[in-house]
Simulated assay, not measured.
Amino acid sequence: MHASYYHKAHACIMVFDVQRKITYKNLSTWYTELREFRPEIPCIVVANKIDADIKMTQKSFSFARKFSLPLYFVSAADGTNVVKLFSDAIRLAVSYKQNSRDFMDEVLQELENISLEQEEEDMLHKERRGRVESPSPS
């Protein structure tokens, strides 16, 4: 993936398909890449398609345990745990955004503030020029 996919992310949901082992094996690569660009954001691991094999919910997946990440068993097809997953991810993201001590987040916030200040200055200049350039009614 490209670094822009992680730009301004405040949480990550990493999903693997319980029926496709390769997706589980890819988690390590994805996680390493994520941490390169966003070292501090909260991350959730999701085992999807449990509707196809409910016995998968009894399995222990070492990846989530190894990195102390929450693991959700979901079914996008029948909706099992989907709302809970997204509610928890949103809660984690909001908390992270409000309390971030990540250097890159601080830099990005400063850049946004500079952009907003510049936009405000530009608007004021345009307004002033508009008043000066407008002919006064006689």
Rank of each mutant, 00 (worst) to 15 (best):
K25T: 05
Y5N: 08
I54D: 11
E36P: 02
H7S: 12
S68I: 03
N99P: 01
K59P: 00
V94S: 13
F103K: 06
N113A: 05
Q19R: 04
S62E: 15
S62H: 10
R128L: 15
R35P: 04
K97I: 06
K66G: 00
R65Y: 12
K49A: 00
A9I: 07
A77N: 14
V107N: 02
T80C: 12
S75Y: 01
V107L: 09
A47H: 05
E127L: 11
E127G: 02
M1S: 15
A47T: 00
P70K: 03
T23W: 03
N113L: 04
R35Y: 13
Q98N: 06
N113S: 02
D88H: 14
V107M: 13
M123L: 15
K55P: 07
H7T: 15
K21E: 11
N26P: 03
E110T: 05
K59T: 01
S100K: 02
F63Y: 09
L71Q: 05
L108S: 02
D53P: 01
K55M: 09
D53L: 02
S75P: 04
Y96L: 12
V18A: 10
T57G: 00
V74M: 11
E133V: 07
V107K: 10
R101Y: 05
R131L: 01
N81H: 14
N48M: 04
S134N: 04
I44G: 01
E133R: 12
D102P: 01
E133I: 07
D51Y: 08
Q19H: 02
N99I: 06
L124C: 03
V15A: 03
E121V: 06
K49H: 12
N99D: 10
E110Q: 14
T29E: 10
A52C: 03
E133S: 05
E36T: 07
E106N: 04
F37W: 15
A9N: 00
A77E: 14
S134L: 07
S100T: 07
Y72M: 13
N26R: 12
I90H: 06
S4L: 06
T57P: 03
R20E: 05
L34P: 03
R35F: 13
D53E: 10
L27C: 08
E40L: 08
L85H: 04
F73S: 09
L27Q: 08
D51K: 01
I50W: 11
F16T: 03
C43D: 09
S68L: 12
D17T: 01
